[in-house]
Amino acid sequence: MAYSWDNRVDFVVRYMYDIDNNGFLDQNDFLCMAVRACVVEGKGDCSTARLDDYKKLMTNLWEEISAIADDDKDGKISNQEFKDAVKKTCVGKKYEEFPQDEDRKRGGLSLDRYKELYGQFLGNTADNHPAVNLFGPL
């Protein structure tokens, strides 16, 4: 089904993290996300200081995700490795119970509803709850 848990996790990997679209996650994807975030936040302008901040943030995120998901320690996270990690750390839990990344430790996102929905998007295997539409039609 279009809104199955597998499809939702595939969506996160494919459209949010696998920036170079090579079918797996690696540190390069997270450095690309740093550049993208810097350009978007700066509305086309990406200062060196802001880029360095984003690189640090995304490097930390990569290290946290790879510690949880890169089972074979090859520096690449396959879609299946990511799914297995999400099942292990997120399924059946609320957002507050997800692994604590550096952004969240600093106060992170303040949009409680978004967090709740994102938690359900990844943590609820049903395909008929409101969070399945969090990113629009898949």
Rank of each mutant, 00 (worst) to 15 (best):
M58P: 04
F98D: 08
Y114N: 06
Y114L: 07
D112G: 13
F98R: 05
A49V: 14
N128S: 06
D74G: 07
N22A: 06
K83V: 09
R50L: 10
V12A: 05
N22Q: 00
F135D: 08
G108D: 09
K93S: 05
E63F: 08
D45L: 15
N133Y: 14
D52S: 14
E116N: 14
N22I: 02
V91P: 00
D6P: 00
P130C: 07
L117E: 01
A37H: 09
L117I: 04
D53E: 15
F98S: 01
D10K: 08
N60C: 08
I77E: 00
S4D: 10
V86K: 04
P99N: 10
V39A: 11
S110K: 15
D127S: 12
F11G: 00
D6A: 10
A2Y: 11
R104M: 10
D103E: 07
N133V: 05
E41M: 11
H129Q: 14
K56Y: 06
K105R: 07
Y114A: 09
Y3M: 10
V86N: 05
W62F: 08
S110T: 15
N128Q: 13
L117A: 04
R104N: 11
P130D: 04
F135K: 03
V39H: 01
L25V: 03
D18C: 04
A49Q: 13
E96L: 09
Y54V: 02
A34T: 03
Q120G: 10
A49S: 15
V132Y: 05
C46K: 04
Q120T: 10
Q80E: 01
I77L: 06
N7K: 06
K115L: 12
L109C: 13
I65V: 14
T59F: 07
G92N: 12
